[in-house]
Every structure is written in structure tokens, then in C-alpha cells.
Design a protein around this nucleic acid. Structure first.
Length: 332
DNA sequence: GGTAGACCTGGACGC
DNA sequence: GCGTCCAGGTCTACC
């Protein structure tokens, strides 16, 4: 099998850092607990896609990327850039250390990197498919978006045959097709509009990915721009911001309320608990989201084992509201 | 500025 | 197996 390696930061640990956010469970990502391998079909341009298998011998070791076929240099560059973004391989040790200084609870485990997608477009679509819906439906929507609109890989398993659809492809899709074939419901038009905006230049009102990704752009300006977009409200905007590496805002949802009640011992209405959760994590400042998220994530792992051991076929059932409430009630 | 109701899907539950 | 209820964040209309 053709393969190449990518240098990893000294503290990088693939099972911990890939399985650090729920998107590692969403198509076209596939984590294999038995072999600690991250599988993914990634579009390489020109209507082609490659099946990737990413492994690491141990923390700090280079990542070995096996591909189904030999990649052209430009395709390999695109794949490598996508993996760097997904796994946040370019996040500096200084920034991770600053987080650990702000919240020493996670220094020993080394947590700091949060899994994301190879593109901002995929992160935005995944965020929209997670709004106003339970987790199993989010899983289904992403699987079907890949199956219906993603480039098919020449070499692939049944669970990893298609890449995530590129913005240009979804921009041309009909909302009715998204609704009927991908079960996205009323999100149909919003997803098409968002994809069109991704393909439109900033000068003509499109989404300026480079400006949003630029650390020099103020957080408030990013939030103000995101919340203008169709289908993006306060929760989604804050979630996209953490995916952009801006951790000062908390994307609070009903799961945050459950966490506030079950783990932090808060009482009262959902609205009052949301305000208190905000206040609770405010002292962590620009690191607030990571403190919140890793606290939540470690609570999940205390119930179900390390995320890197979760079986894809079983995990969707663990994250239904009913299951989480039962778990919180019995343990919290 | 704050609030109520619609939006759509799928899981849970009762019969 | 079928019907009903409910969870979930955003958007719009209305006060």
C-alpha cells in the first residue's frame, strides 16, 4: 500500500487527540478502536477521492498515512493539509501550555487539541446538522450527505466509500433532494445557501474563510459575521468559533443544561442554568470552551470508557437524551 | 428586547 | 405495528 508520513508534535497522541470531539464519529470519518486507526475518504480534487488510514506508533511518533492508491503530488499536499487541520497538528506547544496553565486539570492527560474537519465548509455543515436534532439523526444526515453527494472513492469499504461533499457540489444541489435523500428536513435550503456562500467571493457577500481563520480577526467580528449566515444562531456560531480555534465562547445547548444539573449540581430553569454555566467557565477566559468541553468529555468517558474504545455501531445509542439523562440520574 | 410558535425527523412510549 | 408525543436550535412574527 502506498504510504507517507507526517511529522507530529511531541505531545500528539492520535487515540486521545482524534477521539476528542464528536465529529470523529461522523461520516466520512471512521475510527477503528481495535487498530487505533483513523479512516477517512478525502476528496483530492478533479472528482477524485482517496481512502486514508492514519496510524501512530505512540505519542509524538510521526503519523503514517496509508492511501488506497499512489497520490499525485498536488493531491498528497491537499490530503496533508486536510489532516493537519483535522488533527490540529499546527497548534503550537505554547498555546497548549497556556491552556494547561489556565486549567491545570488537563495537564497530566495532555488534552488540548480538539478534532475538527479538513475544511471550514464541512465544519459548518456538521454544525448545522447537529442543531435541533438528536445525535443519531446527525449521524444519519452526515452519512447520507456523503453517500448522495460525496465523491466516490475507487477503493473503499462500505462504511468509507464516499468523501464529504464539497461546497461546490452542495451549492448546486436541490433543497428537495437534500430533504428527501439525506433527511435534513428544514435545513435543506439553509445548507444549499451556506454552500453557495462558501463558493462566493467575500467581495460579493460570500463567506471569507481566510478572514475567519485569521487569528488576527477579532472574535466579536467573527461571531457577528457567523450569526448573519442562514441557519446559524448563537449556539452554532459559538460552535463554529471553537472549530476555528477560538475558545472564548461557549456553545451551550440542552446538553450543557444536563451537565450543569448532573455534574455541577445546579438547580433551576434551563435558562438560569445556562447563565450559570457561562459564569462557571468565564474565569477560564479565552480557554473557556476547552475547560468546559474536556470536563464534559471526561464525564462521558467515565461512563463509557475512553472515547478511542467506543464502537461506532453502538455509540449513537449512548448519546440520546434519554440515555444521557438516565446516566446522569444514576451517577450524578 | 423578549417571547411564542413553527420548522422536521426520529426515538420513546402507549395501546 | 401504528399513532402520538417529545427533544432539539433557529427563525419569524408579534408585543
Amino acid at each position: 500500500m502506498p504510504a507517507f508520513t507526517i511529522k507530529a508534535p511531541a505531545d500528539f497522541d492520535l487515540p486521545r487527540d482524534a477521539c476528542s470531539y464528536g465529529y470523529f464519529l461522523l461520516a466520512p470519518n471512521h475510527w477503528d478502536p481495535a487498530s487505533s486507526t483513523l479512516w477517512r475518504v478525502m476528496a483530492t480534487g478533479g472528482g477524485r477521492a482517496a481512502l486514508l488510514a492514519v496510524r501512530q506508533r505512540g505519542p509524538g511518533a510521526p503519523l503514517r498515512v496509508t492511501t488506497g492508491a499512489t497520490l499525485r503530488p498536488q493531491d498528497r499536499a491537499r490530503v496533508e493539509a486536510g489532516l493537519v487541520r483535522m488533527l490540529r497538528l499546527d497548534e503550537s506547544a505554547e498555546r497548549i501550555a497556556a491552556f494547561h496553565a489556565a486549567d491545570p486539570r488537563f495537564k497530566a492527560s495532555g488534552r488540548g487539541r480538539l478534532f475538527r474537519s479538513p475544511s471550514l465548509h464541512e465544519d459548518i455543515v456538521k454544525t448545522v446538522t447537529s442543531c435541533n436534532v438528536t445525535w443519531p439523526s446527525t449521524v444519519t444526515m452526515n452519512e447520507r450527505l456523503c453517500e448522495v453527494f460525496g465523491v466516490r472513492c475507487a477503493v473503499g469499504e462500505s462504511w468509507a466509500a464516499h468523501a464529504f461533499p464539497e461546497a461546490a457540489r452542495l451549492a448546486k444541489a436541490s433543497p428537495a433532494a437534500l430533504r428527501a435523500r439525506c433527511r435534513v428536513g428544514y435545513r435543506d435550503t439553509r445548507l444549499v445557501e451556506l454552500s453557495k456562500l462558501m463558493c462566493t467571493s467575500a467581495r460579493h457577500g460570500g463567506i471569507d474563510g481566510a478572514w475567519l481563520e485569521d487569528p488576527g480577526t477579532p472574535d466579536q467580528a467573527v461571531f457577528d459575521r457567523l450569526i448573519e449566515l442562514p441557519g446559524i444562531g448563537p449556539y452554532a456560531a459559538a460552535n463554529i468559533m471553537q472549530l476555528l480555534g477560538r475558545y472564548g465562547r461557549l456553545p451551550l445547548d440542552t446538553e450543557s443544561v444536563r451537565h450543569g444539573r448532573a455534574v455541577l449540581g445546579m438547580k433551576g430553569t434551563a435558562a438560569s442554568i445556562m447563565k450559570r454555566v457561562h459564569r462557571h467557565f468565564a474565569p477560564f477566559g479565552e480557554h473557556a470552551f476547552r475547560s468546559y468541553w474536556f470536563e464534559l468529555w471526561e464525564w462521558y468517558e467515565s461512563r463509557h470508557g475512553a472515547a478511542s474504545t467506543w464502537e461506532r455501531s453502538k455509540v449513537a445509542r449512548l448519546f440520546t437524551a434519554a440515555a444521557l439523562n438516565k446516566s446522569g440520574a444514576s451517577h450524578g
